[in-house]
Simulated assay, not measured.
Amino acid sequence: MEPGACKVPDRDRPPHWGTMTNRSRFLRASLLTLAALTGTAPAAAPATSVTLIFDPAGPWDKAVNESAGGGLERAVREHGMPYDTVTSADQNDMLSRARAAARSGSTLVIGVGRASAGALSKAAGEFPKVRFVGVDALPGGANTVGLRFREQEGGFLAGFLAANVTSTRVLGVITGAEDATARKYRAGFEAGVTLACPDCRVLRASLPRGGNMVGAASLARGQYARGADIILAAVGAGNRGVVTAATAVQCLRASRLPAGVRFHADPYRNVPRSDPYRAECHGNTRPVFAIATESSLDAPGDTDVDRKTLNHTLTSVLKRADNAVFTLVDEVAKGRPWRAGDRTFGVENGGIELSMGDFNAALVPPALRAKLTKVQRMIVNGVVKVPVQ
């Protein structure tokens, strides 16, 4: 990410922020206690009151819900507005909770999840003086905003990275059937691969509607068997199945590569392996990897307790819902003009990034990170036009 590309002051969200409702009550109680001790009245309550409604995955999903919650807490720390958080059971419950929040005095109601658009649109029509925000969704109405993401840019960075370190020049991508967001990931991934390695090819597979982790793992095993050594997982909750397949397969063997596929490079020959990996993958072999989307699955790709040994999640494409939510709430708290409609977040404004940390430090060396920074700059400057399908 280019320095200064994101205007959010603190992009590092805490891993846990506790029960928000309780912390909100604690904040208000602390202000009253301070007033009693000093004999002064607390400052007037801020005009903005926020309710954040998580989708059924809940606040600790390690994905968009959790990230959105982190962004709200950051805004609360900065502006001190009252807030509440609830988890919806389904879309009917999302509507009920949005209505309840509006009736109780919330001036800003934020719903998380792609399926939240309908409920938020209906509530917005019933409460025209309340502002409604969809995270990863685009509700309708003059009092609504959709905070959405340019997933194709994350896919592009992932494809560029994968093409730089593939040993077979065969890569894979698994998407959910009829999933428009997954198609954006795939389009970006394939374009990123082409930029870095025009001779590489990308295998495609789709998980049927209602598919699960087992189905995703089966598709991934099939692509590894066809010579793919890195697979982009864009199947939502099924992403973990692709990572599980990578940790189970561990490596490709030269003796079992399909016709027309061979090893072209060995970029990770000097990365330490765990004992189980060395026992299973000796001789002329190369490791396999998964790339997760939507959330970080770096930890599940680690097969031992040593992060310095080779792990099987190359990276994860992260949606920085925390930055998007913080930006929106910060604008409202400061009284900035309301801009209804679609607000997109990508590489330029801190909405999309690849995870980089202890789990993949040995997999993405500094020279390759420098290349990724240049590609990010190309995206921001419009030199690269990333396709959406």
Rank of each mutant, 00 (worst) to 15 (best):
N349I: 05
R343I: 02
R269D: 11
A124V: 10
S355W: 13
A299H: 10
N311M: 02
V133A: 14
L203E: 03
Y268G: 06
V332R: 09
T21L: 04
V130K: 13
E66A: 07
A196D: 06
G236L: 08
G118M: 13
Q250F: 06
R226C: 08
V332P: 12
L72P: 09
S167D: 10
I110V: 13
A180R: 11
I379S: 05
G341Y: 08
Y83E: 12
L34K: 15
S167N: 11
Q389V: 14
R28N: 07
D90H: 03
T85G: 05
N22Q: 11
G357I: 04
Q250S: 07
I379K: 02
R186W: 04
L34D: 12
V325P: 14
T293A: 04
A115T: 12
P366E: 15
G58P: 03
A142D: 15
V271R: 10
D136W: 15
R103Q: 15
H264F: 10
G69I: 03
R99S: 06
G301W: 05
R97V: 04
I174L: 12
A57Y: 02
R369L: 14
I379C: 08
V109Q: 06
V242N: 10
T315G: 05
L108M: 09
V384G: 01
A41V: 14
G351K: 01
K319E: 07
N65P: 04
R320W: 11
I230F: 08
V332G: 09
G382V: 05
V317N: 02
L363A: 10
V384P: 01
F289T: 01
A163S: 05
D306H: 09
R201P: 07
A340V: 12
A333R: 01
S49A: 12
V305F: 14
G357D: 13
A47Y: 09
R11N: 05
R114F: 15
T51N: 07
P276E: 08
